Simulated scan of single mutants.
Amino acid sequence: MALTETHDYDDIIDLPHRQSRHHAHMPLQTRAAQFMPFAALTGYEDVLDRTVRANEEAIAKANSSVDVADGYLPA
């Protein structure tokens, strides 16, 4: 599909931007705050942190040396 030049909006492209008579213009910082991320899953980070710690402890335990004289025999 080739791009072709159209003139569909030539009649409105240079019109001034509409300003509301009833509502003040919203400051850019306030407008941007509407799109900031929010904590939809409260506590999710805590669960992840606990899981990471548990996995790191399990990996450290699995990688530690064992003394066979203590009665540990691998399966």
Rank of each mutant, 00 (worst) to 15 (best):
N63V: 05
A32N: 13
G71Y: 00
Y44M: 10
H23W: 03
E45S: 15
A69M: 13
H23M: 12
V68I: 12
D70F: 00
S65I: 15
A60S: 10
P37V: 00
T42G: 11
V52K: 03
M26A: 04
A40K: 11
H23V: 12
Q29W: 02
T30L: 09
T51Q: 14
S64N: 12
A62W: 01
T42Y: 01
M26Q: 08
A33K: 05
G71P: 04
A40H: 03
A33H: 04
Y44T: 07
H23D: 09
D49E: 13
A39V: 09
R53K: 10
D70P: 03
R53C: 13
V47T: 14
F38D: 12
V52L: 11
A69C: 04
E45Q: 12
R50Q: 15
S65P: 13
E56A: 03
A33P: 05
G71T: 01
V68S: 14
D67L: 04
Q29L: 14
L41Q: 15
D67R: 02
A32Q: 15
A39Q: 09
N55F: 03
M26N: 04
D46R: 02
Q34E: 14
T42I: 09
A62K: 03
F35D: 10
L28I: 06
E57P: 02
E56W: 00
N55H: 06
H23T: 10
Q34M: 14
A33F: 03
A33T: 08
A62T: 06
D49I: 04
E57Q: 09
E56T: 05
E57C: 05
A58S: 12
A69W: 00
R50V: 06
R50N: 14
F35T: 06
V66R: 11
E57L: 08
A69Y: 00
A54F: 01
S64V: 03
D49Q: 08
L48H: 01
E57T: 04
Q34R: 05
L48W: 02
A58P: 03
V68F: 03
F35S: 08
G43R: 00
V47A: 12
L48K: 07
R50E: 15
D67N: 10
D67F: 00
A58F: 01
S64K: 06
Y72N: 10
Y72L: 13
R53D: 15
D49M: 10
A33G: 11
V66M: 07
Y72R: 08
T51S: 09
D46A: 07
A32M: 13
R31E: 14
A40E: 09
L28R: 08
T51K: 07
A40C: 08
M26R: 03
I59M: 11
H23I: 13
P27H: 00
S65W: 05
T51C: 12
M36N: 09
M26F: 00
F38Y: 09
